[in-house]
């Protein structure tokens, strides 16, 4: 589903991703962990073209991201993205946030988009908040709307960049629950997270990144119980 080969990303002289190789299969849930500044967000953002690639290749569902002929907007419709800071559109009601892309990008009919949005909002437990503006929601509710908004384009893949880092501890759970449901339904997911409990429980595979490289990857069991690499051990001993 996603093939990443020798991916390199530089910001000026700053070499942030140094030769990432990675293959993510359909219906797989991959959690990416690692210290701050290791390049996790950059890696994720490369996967839907929010960052341009310096060298190497990414293929998502047969779309080559490094090929300038690829229509990046088509790729983005297949890879939904959820941000740390939600990035909801403040001037649109919750339901309109969810309907915007289906209406303007996928050009679905209004009725269809609305039915879909209602269905998704019900799914994330926010059916009664449909007609409020994002400014009146709690952080957890905003992030659930953001998830519904990304799902509205029927993505094949969902990318999450620290979706719970900006939330109060007591509402992290409600967002993780929605993500867990999604994983159980068979969505392909790449999740950058600091929630080790979530990674252990939900992930099929955990990738540990440090200084722009994938240092170690394996099942949650392998990574959390018997990490092979010194840097993984060091990182885990600090966060667990």
């Amino acid at each position: 589903m996603i093939f990443v080969e020798n991916l390199n990303k530089k910001f000026g002289p700053n070499h942030v991703l140094k030769g990432i190789d990675c293959h993510i299969r359909e219906r797989e849930v991959v959690c990416v962990i690692g210290p701050s500044g290791s390049g996790k967000s950059t890696f994720l953002r490369c996967m839907n073209g929010l960052e341009t690639i310096s060298s190497g290749s990414i293929v998502i569902n047969k779309h080559r991201l490094d090929d300038s002929k690829t229509n990046i907007n088509l790729v983005r419709q297949e890879a939904g993205m959820v941000f740390q800071h939600f990035n909801l559109f403040p001037h649109l009601k919750v339901i309109d946030n969810v309907m915007l892309a289906p209406l303007k990008v996928a050009k679905t009919s209004k009725e269809e988009a609305r039915a879909k949005a209602e269905m998704l909002l019900t799914k994330v437990g926010l059916a009664e908040k449909m007609d409020t503006f994002p400014g009146n929601l709690s952080g957890g509710q905003m992030q659930r709307v953001a998830i519904a908004r990304a799902l509205a384009m029927d993505p094949k893949i969902m990318l999450f960049d620290e979706p719970t880092s900006a939330l109060d501890p007591e509402i992290v759970g409600e967002v993780l629950a929605v993500m867990k449901d999604l994983a159980n339904e068979g969505m392909t997911m790449v999740v950058v997270t600091h929630e080790m409990g979530f990674a252990r429980e939900v992930a099929d595979r955990v990738i540990f990144m440090d200084q722009g490289r994938i240092v170690e990857e394996g099942t949650p069991e392998e990574i959390f119980s018997s990490p092979q690499h010194g840097r993984t051990q060091g990182f885990l001993s600090k966060v667990l």
């Binding site: 073209g49 929010l50 907007n73 983005r76 419709q77 001037h91 915007l100 303007k104 990304a150």
Partner: peptide, 29 residues
Amino acid sequence: PHGLREAGKALGMKPGQIVRYIILLPATR
């Protein structure tokens, strides 16, 4: 906020659509 633009991009919107449907109203405000 730059994040709004990115959210629009991530949904597959074109630059013109991003300005028109996402940026314009918050900027006006």
